[in-house]
Design a binder for these strands. Structure first.
Lengths: 254, 254
DNA sequence: GTCTATAAACCGATAGAC
DNA sequence: GTCTATCGGTTTATAGAC
């Protein structure tokens, strides 16, 4: 790639980034379903048709935003995974969960784009599935490392029903052949449950119910760690009263 | 109310119901954010301005749909609660959770309306908060009945951090003064976690991951029952053959 | 790759006759 | 309480000049 082409490419990359950035702003004010190419162009001082040189259709812009969101929350989780290397498995689990939750709280509209209601008429293309799996794989990695270190206990819960076991066995063969099948089943459930807490917080279901949301989340994440077989590391957090900096404020910021 | 007024009222009720019914159809095809009064009117053979006699604004139609959805899923949960009276607490818990999940799977768009991404620009009025609490209260009732029967154990998990305890204590005083505070905290977490599994199923996150979704849900609900202190009733569902699934590991008192 | 112009729709909400 | 008509916007997407 020549220098001139490099410059051209760079300009294109910058415009593409600006479009996505403005689109994310509109995600906040209008929601995914009403994201409008024209409005994005207007705000950027462009004309609507110019956008089509960057994104052939509204759905393509959409897909780019979705992939970016999955990658961002996945990167946050992976960063916590790496930063916690060597720590007690239950603490690593909590750290990874917490990283995903913190990203979601900081980016509620992008979170809604990927973990909220599907947008009718939009079918996620195949390109989204790998980014979509990153948080889950970070959780698998925590458990896999614990297993490797010989400190993984059995998951809590009753024996698996046949069809559940079959699903889990298939998953295990694909992404973590060394983990016991019941552990995989517990992991999948815990994965969904973590996002249940995050969604309740981000989508406002905890309004007037849970105020200390950070500590509450950590408490629930710790219980989920135990559920998948990660032994608690010892004492509770710092139990103190001092807030962890969480406000209880409204769920929508712009 | 006279007979004539009764007839007039009835007609009004029927039109109102027809509007909501058509609006629910559009919820499915367009999503909440794009629900359009004009389109509803068009489909009903009315003129758009006529709708304003029934719903003063789009947001009011919205609110009605939301309340209906909360009431429907709440009624499903309450019906399972009543139908399971006398059964083992863990089984009642699973039945109530399963009723909510089944309703959600049968009504994905209404479910998305209330448990999915908030619609930007719409602020839920106070009228929605009582209906919104019905499923949660059904779960509280299961645990409260178990406590009343003396078969409620301690919740799993570590001791509560101070702020979490404070929130839970306030909630307990409002809706279940007889339940231990840690139980309330575990209940709130379990409540959110149940909906996490439901949302992952309804919103497509389980595609190509979990296929046996009913049994998987029951498995997870059973684990959550144990988490809030409801002892398992005995054997696994029916289906399970030889499990290497291991039972409860170390119990951590709270 | 940005522009103008255009097609062919759509929207919420209101005024005022009947 | 339904109608017509209207205000003042909005949208996706394309054609074709530059």
């Amino acid at each position: 790639m020549s220098v001139i082409q490099g410059a051209r490419e760079r300009a294109r990359t910058e415009v593409t980034a600006a479009i996505k950035e403005e689109a994310r702003r509109q995600l906040a004010s209008e929601g995914a379903a009403r994201l409008s190419l024209r409005a994005v162009a207007r705000e950027l001082g462009m004309v609507s048709s110019a956008l089509y040189r960057y994104f052939p259709s509204r759905d393509d812009l959409f897909t780019a935003l979705i992939i970016d969101a999955y990658d961002a929350i996945g990167a946050a989780a992976e960063q916590a995974l790496a930063a916690s290397a060597g720590a007690a498995p239950a603490d690593r689990w909590i750290a990874v969960c917490r990283a995903a939750r913190d990203w979601a709280v900081d980016h509620p509209h992008e979170y809604a784009l990927v973990y909220g209601s599907p947008v009718p008429g939009y079918g996620a293309p195949q390109d989204t599935v790998v980014p979509a799996s990153r948080v889950g794989l970070a959780l698998v990695a925590v458990v896999g490392d614990a297993q490797h270190d010989g400190v993984l206990g059995p998951p809590l819960g009753r024996p698996l029903a046949g069809p559940v076991r079959a699903d889990a066995a298939l998953l295990a063969s694909e992404l973590a052949p060394d983990l016991p099948v019941p552990t995989i089943a517990a992991l999948v459930a815990a994965w969904a449950q973590v996002f249940g807490i995050v969604s309740f917080e981000v989508f406002g279901q905890f309004n007037r119910v849970v105020e200390a949301r950070g500590p509450f989340f950590d408490q629930a994440a710790a219980a989920l760690a135990a559920q998948v077989g990660l032994a608690p590391s010892g004492g509770p957090p710092a139990d103190g009263q001092a807030g962890d900096g969480d406000r209880a404020g409204g769920e929508q910021r712009s």
